[in-house]
Amino acid sequence: MRVLLADRVPEALGLLAGDGAAIPVAGGTDLLVHWPVRIDAHDRTYVDLSRLEDLKPLRWSDRELVLGGLTTYWDVIQDERIGREFPLLVRAARQVGAIQIQARGTWAGNIVNASPAADGVPVLMAYDAVVVLESGRGREEVPLDHFYTGYKEMRRRADQLVVAIRIPRRPYSYQVFEKVGSRRAQAIAKVGLAVTRSDAGWRVVAASMAPTIRRCPMLERLLEQRVQVAHPGDLVPAITQDVSPIDDVRSTAEYRRRVMARVLYDDLRETCGWP
């Protein structure tokens, strides 16, 4: 294991560009989970980001909330204003591991770890978050809902660092986050859902339902068009088009599809005037 230390962002970017295969490490919480079994990870080079103070704070402007590249879940939980304006961020943060993990884990790390079962990504995506990437070659912004290209694949080059996450400030008339795990705490989502409604329209984001966390365009269209839904089963055709759950060590495709339909139906029933 080789660890490179950087004191400032440009230095970190230089190290990433110089190595080509180095892995940036913030909280290290995802790295640690697999450390005993992934021996190959012990041979890699890591760039330690923990001294990059500039990336830690979150900032507010008139038009947006900007999370830093090192902003932790705990930072968000502690921020009362986020609790009022973006409550789903707080709800999701509280669902990540235990407090120790919440204190170390970062939102940017959650994005680049690219787990299809992430807790932070669905709520960011439902709030139309934009990923800000920086490298020696400049700055690039990618909307989070276009960030992932396949299982654990994303539009981030090895020399790029996530330095910020921009979240537009909008009034929301509806917002909900649901996580169905196999226990009440410290669980990995079997089904995750984030649903919001604002002037920009409906956003339905599903976790653990496809190789990546993704928006569900058919469900969003169904909601935009105010289609009448009489039963959770009526949502299944749209769900089948939007996502492709699998059987794995945590759950089954059938369970995931059914639960997504039922939870979505139950959550939206009153708002949408469904029976």
Binding site: R183, R184, A185, A187, V249, R250
Partner: peptide, 16 residues
């Protein structure tokens, strides 16, 4: 056993 890690072998937490 293939879920031989505490991330995938689920035991109750205090909240359960």
């Amino acid at each position: 056993m293939i879920n031989n890690q505490l991330t995938n072998y689920i035991i109750p937490t205090s909240d359960d």
